[in-house]
Design a protein around this nucleic acid. Sequence first.
DNA 1: TGCCTGACGCGGT
DNA 2: CACCGCGCCAGGC
Length: 103
Amino acid sequence: MADIKQWYEQVYAIVKIIPRGRVATYGQIARLAGLKSPRQSGQALSALPEDAGVPWFRVINSAGRISLHRLDGGSLQRALLLNEGVEVSLSGRVDLNRFGWNL
DNA sequence: TGCCTGACGCGGT
DNA sequence: CACCGCGCCAGGC
């Protein structure tokens, strides 16, 4: 844990508290974690090991769309979300008004 | 030290 | 709804 950037842990902590069946945006995570830019959220997750026990699939961009990355073209994330009741269109779109994480 | 890249966000067309 | 451009910041080389 020592070689992991301090704020990465901060991001993971926030992602872990996202309720099951809900999704949060990168910007939202960044804000809650006190980061300077939403980009950092993605950067932290990109360095996240698959078996870290962090529900990274509940994080999407502000447009309510699943972002593509190196470990998954979007199909896996879509399947995981559908599995917990979140409606995701074929193109990877989610209705934030219904599944977004609001407090 | 400097340049390039990336799981972003937002406003405009 | 799709596409485009710009601003933003940390990391890797």
